[in-house]
C-alpha cells in the first residue's frame, strides 16, 4: 500500500478514529459535513498531530515529521492562496531552494499546463473561483509532491466550472503521476473521478472500495448515506 494511516484524535467532543489505506491512484474520501474528513487530511499533511497512531507514506513512517518535511501537497478548502503575492510568486513559493532559472522554468511550465500562464502577474483577489483553484493546484504540484491532498476542491465553483475542473483533476493525476486523495461530500465527484472511494462517517472510515460495490454495501450507515434520498438532497443542493 502506498499510504497507510491509523490515527486517533480527540478535538473537543469530536473523536476521529480512522484506519485507512490507499494505493497510487485517485482516491475519493466521501462523507457528510462534520465527519472529520478535513481533520483526517490535516493529519496526513502533518498540520495536526494525532493523539495516537501512525502515518506511513511509501513505506516510510512520517508520523513525527513536520509538514515541511513530508513532501505532501495540500490544497485546502477555498485554496488559501497568499493574498499578498501574485500568481507567479504563489506558485513559486515552495521552490525557494530551487535555482532561479530552474524555478522560473518550472513555474511557467506548470502554469502553461494548467492554463493559467496569462494570469502570472495577477493577485489572487482578481481571479475567478476556477482560476484560484488552478493556481492552488499548480502551487501544490510544482514541488513535485509524493501525494496530493485536496480538501473539497470543487465546492467553491459553479456547476459549469466544476465539470471543467474535474477533467483537469483527472488529467493532473495522470500527467503528474501523483496519487491523489480527494475529500468531498459530493457523490458526483466520487462517481466521476475516483478509482477508489472510502466512506467516512463520524470520524471513522466505514468502508472502502469501488463506488458501485459501495452501493451494494450491507453496512446500514453506508447505504443510508448513499441512499436515493441523500442523492436527491445533493441534486437539490446543486440546483440551489
Amino acid at each position: 500500500m502506498f499510504l497507510r494511516v491509523r490515527a486517533e484524535k480527540k478535538l473537543g467532543n469530536f473523536r476521529l478514529n480512522a484506519n485507512f489505506e490507499m494505493d497510487r491512484g485517485y482516491c475519493v474520501l466521501l462523507g457528510p459535513t462534520g465527519a472529520g474528513k478535513s481533520v483526517f487530511l490535516e493529519i496526513i499533511a502533518g498540520i495536526i498531530r494525532p493523539d495516537r497512531g501512525e502515518v506511513k507514506l511509501n513505506g516510510a513512517d512520517i508520523t513525527s515529521l513536520p509538514p515541511e518535511k513530508r513532501g505532501v501537497g495540500f490544497v485546502p478548502q477555498d485554496y488559501a492562496l497568499f493574498p499578498h503575492l501574485n500568481v507567479y510568486k504563489n506558485i513559486g513559493y515552495g521552490l525557494r531552494r530551487v535555482e532561479k532559472l530552474e524555478r522560473d522554468k518550472r513555474v511557467k511550465e506548470i502554469a502553461e499546463k494548467l492554463g493559467i500562464a496569462h494570469l502570472l502577474d495577477r493577485k489572487p483577489a482578481r481571479l475567478s473561483g476556477g482560476e484560484r483553484q488552478r493556481v492552488a493546484l499548480a502551487r501544490a504540484l510544482v514541488i513535485q509532491p509524493k501525494l496530493l491532498l485536496l480538501d473539497e476542491p470543487l465546492s467553491a465553483v459553479d456547476l459549469r466550472t466544476k465539470g471543467v475542473l474535474m477533467e483537469m483533476l483527472k488529467f493532473v493525476q495522470k500527467d503528474f503521476e501523483v496519487p491523489v486523495l480527494h475529500v468531498t461530500h459530493d457523490l458526483m465527484e466520487a462517481a466521476l473521478l475516483a478509482d477508489e472511494v472510502a466512506v467516512m462517517l463520524n470520524g471513522k472510515i466505514i468502508e472502502k472500495g469501488k463506488l458501485k460495490d459501495l452501493f451494494r454495501s450491507k453496512n446500514e450507515e453506508v447505504s443510508d448515506f448513499l441512499s436515493a434520498r441523500n442523492l436527491l438532497l445533493k441534486v437539490s443542493e446543486i440546483l440551489d
Binding site: 502533518g46 515541511e68 495540500f74 514541488i143
Partner: peptide, 11 residues
Amino acid sequence: RLEHVARTLGS
C-alpha cells in the same frame, strides 16, 4: 490555513 499551506510547501 495560509500558514498551514506554507508549511506543506516546505517552509
